[in-house]
Simulated scan of single mutants.
Amino acid sequence: MRRLIIRLNRLFLIAGGLILLVMTIQIGVVALSRALFNLAFDGNVEIAKYYYMVAISALPLGAVQAAREHVIVEVFTQWMSERAKMLLDWCALIFTTVYSAVLTVGCVLAAMDAFETREFHRLFAFDLIYWPSRWILAVGLLGFLMTAIYMVFSRQEKLESDSEEA
C-alpha cells in the first residue's frame, strides 16, 4: 500500500511540475506576443486561474505531506519530551485526516454538481468550461487524504512499538 501511495503522489508531483512548465511557457508566449506583435489571447488569465493554479497547488499536496515538508512551528512544544511530541503530532495528523476527508467529500460533491450543470465562465469570445478543475482539486485532495490515512496508521504502530520498549 505504501508503494502505491508513494507512486501516486510522485505521479501527481510530476504532473504538477509539468503543468507549471506549461503555464510558464503559455504566459511567456502571451507576454512576447503582446510585446512584439501587440496581440493578446482571450482567456489566458482565466485558464491559468481555473486550471493551472488549481493543479499546481492541489496535486502535490500528498507528496508534500509524505515528505513532511509542511510548515511546523514548535514554539509551544519545544519543551515537551520526544514521546509527547510524537503523540501530539499523531493527534494533529488524525485531525488533519478527518478535516481532509470532509474537504475531499465536499470537493467531490461540488465536482459532481459542477459536471452535471456543465459549469463554465463566460469570456468575450467563448465560454471556458471549468468543471474539470473541480475534479483536479478533488483528485489532489484524495491523494493527500490517502497519504494522511497511511501516516496515521504507520505512526500509531510506531507509538505502540515505542511504548512497548519503554
Rank of each mutant, 00 (worst) to 15 (best):
M1L: 09
L4F: 12
I5Y: 06
I6E: 14
R7W: 12
L8M: 10
R10I: 02
L11F: 14
L13C: 08
L21M: 15
L21Y: 08
V22T: 12
V22L: 15
I25D: 01
I25F: 14
I27H: 01
V29T: 09
S33K: 02
R34T: 00
R34S: 01
A35M: 11
L36H: 02
L39S: 09
E46I: 06
Y51K: 05
V54I: 14
A55T: 06
S57N: 03
L59V: 05
V64S: 00
A67C: 02
A67T: 01
A67M: 06
R68M: 00
E69H: 03
I72N: 11
I72C: 05
I72M: 06
I72T: 11
V73A: 10
E74F: 12
V75T: 15
F76G: 14
W79V: 12
R83P: 04
K85T: 03
M86A: 14
M86H: 11
L93G: 13
S100M: 15
A101K: 04
V102D: 03
L103N: 04
L103Y: 10
G106E: 05
G106L: 02
C107T: 04
A111R: 07
F115K: 09
E116A: 14
R118V: 03
R118K: 14
R118I: 01
R118C: 02
R118H: 11
F120I: 02
F120D: 07
H121N: 11
H121C: 07
D127V: 05
D127S: 11
D127A: 10
W131F: 13
P132N: 04
R134V: 08
R134K: 12
W135Y: 08
W135I: 06
A138K: 06
L141P: 03
L141Q: 08
L145C: 08
M146R: 00
T147W: 03
I149M: 05
Y150H: 11
Y150Q: 07
M151L: 14
Q156I: 07
E157P: 01
E160N: 14
S161G: 06
E164K: 15
E164P: 03
A166S: 13
A166P: 04
